[in-house]
Write a protein that binds this DNA or RNA. Sequence first.
DNA 1: CGAGAAGTTGAGTTATTTCAACACGTGTGG
DNA 2: CCACACGTGTTGAAATAACTCAACTTCTCG
Lengths: 229, 229
Amino acid sequence: MTDCATCVVRNRAICASLDADELALLGKLGRRHRLRAGHSLLWEGDDAPLVANVMDGVLKLAVAAADGREQIVGIVFPSDFIGRPFGKESPYSATAITDVEVCVFHRASFDDFTSAHPDLQHKLLRRTLDELDRARHWMMLLGRKSAEEKVASFLLEMSERLSGQACDADAQRGFELPFGRQQIADILGLTIETTSRQLTRMRANGLVDLPSRREIVINDRAAMEAIAG
Amino acid sequence: MTDCATCVVRNRAICASLDADELALLGKLGRRHRLRAGHSLLWEGDDAPLVANVMDGVLKLAVAAADGREQIVGIVFPSDFIGRPFGKESPYSATAITDVEVCVFHRASFDDFTSAHPDLQHKLLRRTLDELDRARHWMMLLGRKSAEEKVASFLLEMSERLSGQACDADAQRGFELPFGRQQIADILGLTIETTSRQLTRMRANGLVDLPSRREIVINDRAAMEAIAG
DNA sequence: CGAGAAGTTGAGTTATTTCAACACGTGTGG
DNA sequence: CCACACGTGTTGAAATAACTCAACTTCTCG
């Protein structure tokens, strides 16, 4: 049994809509679970018997082609929800990018619980609507933006989403990506070489500093926004 | 006042979850409205004071860049839902592609009604989850597929969604697109020329017939699926 | 310290875009 | 009924952004 009362993401996750009694009930359904970087929680095309809340770490949602091409279609941060409630196989895989801690539920029992708790369902609807907006916004990037615009947009979005709690200006200027270059390429629909070249060029122009492989410092946010288009 | 009892899409739209009394209530909130092809119901970035169900016709959801580039991020068919419940400005425009008949609600009153009717909310959640899956699937296409694969995938998806009611094999082989070439290009993240060339090539290979500008006949579905990847 | 993974850089190739001309079809007015 | 003009779609040639392949460099970690 899981102790929702001490959950680190409780006030940000969908569970925030529940009162103490409901939380206790939900706690009986959930199991905390650790996942090492590189391991998957859901597989594309497989029946998905579970849903989950992320407590710590980052996961990617990805679709793969037969020949190995991969497109990352979503990034899951702490307090985000993973999975496909109400039936259906999972249309994408969910794989841990860092070591991850999740709160896992059997899909069927979570579905039942959700149906009985309209507030939870409402919270889930709002989140899904937000995710849909984000996905559609990303479609514009994938379909119509140049490599340079893609990288600039990516850096700006990550600087915002990674700040999370600490949303002061400093945290947004410098941050550490949880992704390697190949993963950035898979998010942007580019090759690893093009991604690397764009970052190098931005560093040469003084737009960013790259203190280490995964650290990014945005020197000129306004210029970056102008490039992102 | 709108008469939901005689609505042509009632059993397919989200309203299907409602009983007679609830339908009558909802009917008081809704207004039927006609929209000519080319006119918009929502504008990107504007506050969206309404939501709607489509009764007849087709609309596009699109995101535009300052320089005129456009990406279509969703296609809305009869019985589909349009709009962004629960606040927020509309992140995309919704524009009629054919003449359209919609059932429009003030967003605020629709939100209230939804909150009071968990079944409706449940239906809305399921639809939003489906839309999210579709959008993510499309992200793979936009980010990783070649022009040929894009066009093949598009034709197959349209053959399925346009069949709608008449889902016999004939209706899926030949169908009439509600889009012009430019709109197909905006859906696929290509130029109009590339789109045209791919279609011409498919006709030359005997994969499709193009009896008129908007008609498509898929001759070899299996081959088309192989190309779509 | 050494080996392997991850990232960068360069040179050449290619898919897609861009720019421009042309074809088709349809509706209007002479 | 024909001519013409406009919107839409097609085709061709040239330009280019991004990809591919390959070598090299830099980190990371045992």
